[in-house]
């Protein structure tokens, strides 16, 4: 099967489709709920509140240093659920594959999904595969949805930021977006870059173990840290102050941004979170974050204030001040 390609028949729902599922998917995602191959998964739900989220993944290139579309699709939805303060339990996965897609690449992507799900401790319990004619989709698109359980006493929301809260970022920012841009545009900068794609649910659990007084959690994906902070400032109707010198940025990412006129604050991350934590617990939570493999470079980058509501203001590295606004569209490289 190794040199084969995906045919329209693989999405037909007939024998070819069954074979693809039986031979390639079930061995990777084996669990009793999925292997029944019913139209949907059925399971008991725990008491209390649940979180539910969905996301679609269309990244180009499909494979990049530090990951591929498969682990991104798992980590992304796991993280969205974790950012609700929930412990992710079950995922669905929908694949839209372009006719002619190499079977070997599909296998690599599915394998990554399986490894990431295992790492995050979630199960893929239902799925769907469609094949569309050549040109009707760009290689492969993946949608994942997921549900998770919110522990008793946890109330995390973008509306909950309070003056005095400390803002923690779990590590260096901009790694994913810059890696993708570097790879996609075939830029020949000699810079070792790697996506930070990772599941953050264990990190969140560790933080909630210290205190339930975590008001906001957000994974700053598209639009980056700046956009996430602006959304929170608006939703919570508070002001946010951050310090540029405390924001961790890898040297190669900062250099690349500087050459192309991009601002790392607006660049996507796939394995970082921002947490708004009540002041009295902030140091302890920060220590816990730093103990996690996803949070070694974590820092407190600022705090919530009751001034300039709805705005994010940054103290610049040289001691100046400026507004950090929301991104309008994609960041485009400058001319000179």
């Amino acid at each position: 099967m190794k040199k084969d390609r995906i045919l329209l028949d693989h999405g037909s729902g007939g024998r070819m489709a069954n074979r693809l599922i039986a031979e390639m998917m079930l061995p990777l995602f084996d669990n009793p709920m999925l292997s029944r191959l019913d139209d949907g998964a059925s399971f008991d739900i725990p008491d209390g509140r649940m979180a539910f989220s969905t996301d679609s993944y269309v990244v180009d290139p499909l494979f990049f240093p530090g990951g591929n579309i498969g682990d991104l699709a798992i980590n992304g939805t796991v993280n969205d659920i974790a950012m609700c303060g929930a412990l992710p339990l079950y995922l669905s996965a929908g694949l839209i594959i372009e006719e002619g897609f190499p079977m070997q690449d599909l296998e690599a992507i599915l394998r990554s999904m399986s490894i990431s799900a295992e790492k995050a401790g979630v199960k893929i319990v239902t799925g769907d595969t469609k094949v569309v004619p050549r040109g009707a989709a760009d290689k492969i698109f993946i949608n994942t949805s997921g549900i998770g359980q919110i522990p008793e006493g946890v109330n995390v929301s973008g509306e909950n930021a309070r003056p005095g809260d400390k803002i923690i970022v779990s590590g260096t920012i901009g790694d994913h977006g810059i890696t993708i841009l570097h790879q996609r545009e075939g830029l020949s900068f000699d810079a070792q870059m790697k996506s930070d794609s990772a599941p953050l649910n264990h990190l969140v659990a560790r933080m909630l173990n210290i205190t339930k007084n975590i008001h906001v959690l957000r994974d700053p994906t598209r639009g980056g840290v700046a956009t996430a902070l602006n959304e929170i400032a608006a939703k919570s109707n508070v002001g946010i102050r951050i310090r540029e010198s405390d924001i961790p940025v890898k040297k190669n990412v900062a250099g690349f941004c500087s050459i192309l006129g991009l601002d790392p604050l607006f660049v996507a991350n796939e394995g970082k979170l921002i947490a708004f934590v009540e002041k009295r617990h902030a140091d302890e939570v920060l220590r816990a974050v730093k103990e996690d493999s996803c949070g070694r470079d974590a820092r407190i980058i600022g705090e919530v204030v009751s001034l300039h509501c709805g705005k994010v203001i940054m103290e610049t590295a040289i001691g100046g001040e400026r507004i950090v606004n929301m991104l309008t569209g994609e960041q485009l490289p400058r001319i000179c």
Partner: peptide, 15 residues
């Protein structure tokens, strides 16, 4: 224009 952006971005007017 690159100066304009740098002046704003670093908050130079503030100083």
């Amino acid at each position: 224009g690159t100066h304009t952006v740098s002046i704003f971005r670093h908050g130079i007017r503030f100083l």
